[in-house]
Design a binder for these strands. Structure first.
Lengths: 140, 140
DNA sequence: GTGTTTGCAAAGTGTTTGCAATTTA
DNA sequence: TAAATTGCAAACACTTTGCAAACAC
């Protein structure tokens, strides 16, 4: 059985990433990194923080999301042009997007495979390959 | 050899789509549908129109792009959260995105293949499957 | 003529920024 | 106490909207 000290681990986590563990950043890290992978938007995380009585401004939410992203604790996902999503799963993987709900869901690695990549335009290199499967409720 | 009347064809094109061929819409359609497939942004198309001495407002650019999209003359592509791209190629295909340049390029059909799609969450159906390959200039 | 479309300016949305006050090390 | 961070309000970029004037049929 694995005895954890989740709180300290999260602080270590962000310290190791070279980020000063301020009250706000610790609070957000606790929301983000305690448990399953998550997909959050700035506004969603802000509301969640308020609900949990974390005193924080939306500016700090944005700052923190970007710092965490720069430190590779989060990954930015582009799904629709209205809002930016951040994924706590920074490994390489693809996504379902529930168009109806505006919600992202990871596709397990290995559940999808790209056969045959096209040849790249001359003098370029691949930065990322992303598959996005948009889904919606089936109507009989 | 195929003798075309591109101007009339374009008008027919939008009339067939159930869109009234106003001066502005014809002008934009001529920019968009005369020749190779294109990827445009609202602002890019606006500047291009101004350069060609087409008197039009940015509001009308947006209206027209949306009407054309609703009529399936254009397809919206989500690449980055700062701007919306519209693709004159409405067939199913995937994209390269030059991160450096903010430019989209079609991947020829058949150049990429998805092997194995994941099973969908229960009660859902696929609306679209998009592959986006971000590329940038190779630095030796 | 009548209903549609245009263009302007104003409003809206999500995000970023400048800067004084606060907090961290 | 020096340097980094926060939070507010203002600024921003892109997009949408309300409405009177112009246009298409």
């Amino acid at each position: 059985m694995n005895i954890e000290k989740p709180f300290e681990n999260i602080i270590e986590h962000i310290i190791n990433a070279g980020i000063r563990p301020t009250r706000q950043r610790i609070a957000l890290a606790k929301l983000l990194f305690r448990g399953d992978y998550r997909h959050v938007t700035a506004d969603g995380l802000y509301k969640e923080a308020l609900r949990e009585n974390i005193r924080i401004s939306i500016a700090t939410i944005y700052n923190t999301l970007h710092q965490f992203t720069a430190a590779n604790l989060l990954q930015k996902i582009v799904v629709d042009s209205d809002r930016t999503y951040f994924d706590t799963n920074v490994g390489h993987h693809h996504h379902f997007f529930y168009s109806d709900l505006g919600q992202l869901e990871d596709i397990q690695n290995g559940k999808i495979e790209l056969l045959k990549l096209p040849e790249l335009p001359h003098g370029t290199k691949v930065d990322s390959v992303d598959v996005l499967i948009k889904i919606s409720k089936k109507t009989i």
